[in-house]
Amino acid sequence: MNELKIGNKTANVPIIQGGMGVGVSRSRLAGAVAAAGGIGIISTAQIGYDEAGFCTDPKKANITAIKKHIALAKAQAKGGLVGVNIMVALKDYAEHVKASIEAGADVIISGAGLPVSLPKLTEGTDTKIAPIVSTEKAAHVILKLWDRKFHRTADFIVIEGPKAGGHLGFSQEELADADQMDYDNEIRKIISAVREYEEKYHREIPVIVAGGIYSREDAFHAAELGADGIQAATRFVATEECDADIAYKMAYVKAKKEDVVIIKSPVGMPGRAIRNPFLEEVAQGTCKIERCYGCLAKCDPKEIPYCITDALIRAVKGDVEHGLIFAGENVEKVDKISTVKAVIDDLSAGFYSGEKNTFHILPHVV
Rank of each mutant, 00 (worst) to 15 (best):
E196W: 07
D310E: 13
N185M: 05
I308M: 13
V207P: 11
E204T: 04
I230A: 03
Y306I: 02
Q180A: 09
L296A: 05
R275H: 06
Y248P: 10
L296T: 00
F236V: 12
E281L: 06
K288H: 14
I246H: 08
P277G: 08
R272L: 05
C242Q: 01
I289N: 07
A210T: 12
G271E: 08
R235P: 10
V194F: 12
E303L: 12
V207I: 13
D310Y: 00
I190L: 10
R216H: 15
P305C: 13
D319I: 02
A238D: 10
R188W: 02
G226K: 14
A247S: 07
D245C: 11
Y306D: 12
A283I: 04
A273L: 05
E186Q: 05
G271R: 06
I205D: 10
L312S: 14
C299K: 03
E303Y: 01
I246R: 12
V237K: 02
A255G: 09
N276D: 04
G285T: 10
G226S: 14
I308Y: 03
I274V: 08
I304A: 01
Y252Q: 07
I230H: 09
V282T: 08
P206V: 14
M181T: 10
I230F: 02
R235C: 03
A219W: 08
D177R: 09
A255R: 08
A222M: 12
A273N: 05
I262V: 15
K256R: 09
Q231W: 05
R195L: 00
P270R: 04
D300Y: 00
E280R: 12
E196C: 12
A297V: 11
E240W: 00
I274M: 04
P277N: 04
K257I: 05
N276S: 09
A238W: 06
N185A: 13
M181Y: 15
V316N: 07
K254E: 07
C299G: 02
A233D: 14
G271S: 15
